[in-house]
Design a protein around this nucleic acid. Structure first.
Lengths: 350, 350
DNA sequence: TCCTTGAACGTAAGCGCTTACGTAACCGCT
DNA sequence: AGCGGTTACGTAAGCGCTTACGTTCAAGGA
C-alpha cells in the first residue's frame, strides 16, 4: 500500500495554524476555534484571526485535523467501472453535490471484481473517509456479501456513514432504482407489441441488479404465458462486448426471435452492432431494448427503447443520505424507473 | 469546507499500531518498522509482527501516517466533468493503475469552471495528496492560468508531484495528445474527399485544446486555399447539447455546407441528432466528423469518422509520470492521434 | 581480554490539529 | 462588597503514526 507512494513533503512552505495564531497574537486554541466557527471566541477576535488566515493563505492540514478528531471532509465512492456511462453519471451526481458541500470524493472502481471491491471499501475506510457510498449491484455470492456487510457494519459502528445504490439487502441507507418495476415495464412493452419469441441477453445473475430486472421481466412474461425460465437467455459480461457475444450466441440458439431484451444499454448497444453487421433490420425484423437510458441511447440508430434511471440523481441522493445524520433505522429512497419508448421496438412482422 | 462533513469516529474499534505492538510483545517503533518494511528489524521479528497485524486486521491510519511524515498513498485527479466519456475514460485509466499500485484517487470535477478548478486543485493539495493530475484542456485566460501555474509550482516546491494531461504550456510533466496533428488529419481527410464548403462547430476557444485542434485544421484548410478564419464556425458548449445548438446555428448561417467538423465527439453526436431530425442524410448530403473517439462513436448511425485519442492510456501515463521520481526538467509524453474513418464522411454530392 | 562495531530494538519527540479543562476578568445580583 | 455565573481565552493532553537518537548485546579484531 505504501510502495509507490510519493513521500510527504517535510514541512512545505504552507503556513500552519501556529503561524496564524502568532501573527494574530492569540493562542492556537483560539485560532482553531475562530476558524472552525466554534463557540467561545469573541466576534472581533474571530474576525481578526480569519483575516490573518486569509492573508497568510492558510489552509488547514486535513490529516492533522482529522487525526485530532475534527470533521472529515472526504467521502469514498466505490463503483464497478468508472469508464461506464452508468457509473460515470452516478459519480457525476456525487461529485456535484460534494463540491457544493465542500467535500472531496475518493473514488475506487473494482472492475466488477467482488474481492477487489471489498478491498477497496476497506481501503477507503482505512483512509479515514467520513462516509462510504457503494454503487452498483451487489454480488449474489454469500460469502463476499457477508464480508461486505460485516465491514460496513463495523464501519457504521465506528461512526462512519454508509449509503449504497442498488443493494437493497444491506440494512443500510439505500438508494434503490426500481429494477423490478423497470424490468416489468420494458417486458410488458415488448409483449404488448405482440412479441412472443423473445430472447434475453443478460449479465451475470450473480448481480442482484440482474436478478431484480429479470424478476420484473418474468412477471410480465408470465402474464402472457411465457416466463424467463422458458425464454432463451444468454449470459455474458455486462458490457458492450458482452452484448455482442451474447447476441451472436442468441442468434445461433434461437434464430427466430423477434425481440431481444438486453439487461442494460451497453449490452443492447453491442447487440445492435451485431444485428447491423448481419444486416438484420431493427426493429423491422428484431426489436431491441436496453436498460438505464445512458446519454447516448437517444443517439443510436435506431434510438433505443429502454428504461430510464436517473443516475446522477441517484448519486446525489446517496450522498445526501450519507451526509444526513444517522438514523436508527436504515432509510430507503426509490429512484423511479421510467419506460422510454424510442425507435428500436415495433410490432413483429406478421 | 467543514460544515457538512461527518464527524470522525472517536476511537472506533479499529486496532492501532500499539495494539499490534503489544500483542507481538515489541515496541511500536519496531512494529512500525516491521510493517513498513524499513531496515533495522530482524526477519523473524518482522514476520511475527506481520502475522499479528493480519490476525488483528490492522490497517494503518492514513491520517496519522501521513501526518507523521510517512508516504502518501492518495493522488488527486481534476477533470472537467466526470460524466463525459472522455474524462470518464481518462479516470478509468488512472484508477486502474492506482489500484494496482495500492493508491487511492481523489477526484474533483470542475464543471468546466476555471475558478472551480483552481479551488479544487488547492483543496486537493490541502488534503495532502501526494500527487495531483490535472486533466483536460487549460483555460486560455491569462490570470487563471497564472494562478494555476503558481499553485502547482509551489506545490511542486513543497515536494508534491504534478502531471497534466493536455496542457503543454505548463512547465510540468505532461501527457499531451496530438491535438494539432489530429486536427490536421481530420481536416485533410475532409478536404481530400473534395469538400470545400465546410462548417466547424467548436467549443470555447478559451480552451487550449480547441485552439490546438483548430490550428491543425487550419493548416489542412490552408493547403487548399481555405482557412479557419474564412470558415463558418460556431462556438457553443463542448457537449452534446452544445453540438445541437451549434449545428442549428450553423445550418442557418451556412445552409450549403457539405461537411461539418465538430471539435469533439459529443458535439458531433449533437450535430448528428439535429441532422437526423431535419432529415438531412449523413453523409449523403453532409459529412460529419468528431474528435476523441469515445466508445460509442462506432455505434452511432452512421458510425462516426473521428480522431482516436487513447484516453485511458493517457490517464495511466499521467499517473506513471506523477509516480516516477521528480526530474529536473519536465517530461512530456505524447499520446498519438489516429484518424478513424468510418461511415459519417463521404465525398460531397456533385 | 578489552574495545570497537553494528545489528536489533526501545525511547521519546514530534507531525498539525481539536478540545477538555483551567483561569482570569467581568457581569449582575443580593 | 461579596458571591455565583458567564464569557473569553490559554494550557496542555492527546489523535496514531514515523523516525532520530539511545541503549543493549553479540561478534569480531587487536
Amino acid at each position: 500500500m505504501a510502495g509507490s507512494g510519493t513521500r510527504a513533503r517535510p514541512h512545505g512552505s504552507r503556513p500552519r495554524l501556529s503561524d496564524v495564531a502568532e501573527e494574530a497574537g492569540v493562542s492556537i486554541a483560539t485560532a482553531s476555534r475562530a476558524l472552525s466557527g466554534a463557540a467561545g471566541v469573541s466576534e472581533s477576535m474571530a474576525d481578526r484571526v480569519r483575516t490573518v488566515a486569509a492573508e497568510l493563505g492558510y489552509v488547514a492540514n486535513l490529516h492533522a485535523r482529522t487525526l485530532a478528531g475534527g470533521p472529515t471532509s472526504v467521502v469514498g465512492l466505490v463503483v464497478h467501472e468508472i469508464g461506464d456511462p452508468y457509473f460515470a453519471e452516478i459519480a457525476s451526481g456525487v461529485l456535484g453535490l460534494a463540491a457544493a458541500e465542500g467535500l472531496t470524493v475518493q473514488i475506487c472502481h473494482s472492475g466488477r471484481d467482488p474481492e477487489a471491491e471489498l478491498t477497496q471499501i476497506r481501503t477507503l475506510i482505512a483512509n479515514g473517509v467520513g462516509a462510504v457510498i457503494v454503487a452498483g449491484s451487489g454480488f449474489v455470492d454469500r460469502e463476499i456479501r457477508a464480508k461486505v456487510t460485516a465491514t460496513l457494519k463495523s464501519y457504521l459502528a465506528d461512526g462512519g456513514r454508509v449509503a449504497v445504490i442498488g443493494r437493497h439487502h444491506l440494512a443500510v441507507d439505500t438508494v434503490q432504482p426500481e429494477n423490478d418495476k423497470g424490468g416489468h415495464a420494458i417486458a410488458e412493452h415488448v409483449v404488448s407489441l405482440g412479441h412472443r419469441r423473445i430472447g434475453i441477453i443478460s449479465g451475470s445473475r450473480a448481480l442482484t441488479t440482474i436478478h431484480d430486472r429479470l424478476g420484473g421481466m418474468d412477471r410480465a412474461l408470465q402474464a402472457v404465458g411465457l416466463g424467463v425460465a422458458s425464454t432463451p437467455l444468454v449470459e455474458a459480461a455486462f458490457t458492450r462486448d458482452g452484448g455482442k457475444e451474447a447476441a451472436l450466441e442468441l442468434l445461433e440458439r434461437a434464430p427466430d426471435v423477434t425481440a431481444i431484451m438486453a439487461l442494460n444499454d451497453d449490452m443492447a448497444i453491442g447487440a445492435l452492432s451485431v444485428l447491423r453487421d448481419r444486416g438484420i433490420p431493427v426493429p423491422g425484423q428484431i426489436s431491441v431494448t436496453g436498460f438505464d437510458d445512458v446519454a447516448v441511447a437517444q443517439d443510436l440508430a435506431p434510438s433505443l427503447t429502454t428504461v430510464r434511471l436517473p443516475m446522477g440523481e441517484m448519486g446525489r441522493q446517496a450522498l445526501e443520505l450519507a451526509l444526513s445524520p444517522a438514523a436508527k433505522r436504515s432509510r430507503r429512497r426509490t429512484a423511479r424507473a421510467e419506460l422510454i419508448v424510442r425507435a428500436s421496438t415495433a410490432a413483429p412482422r406478421t
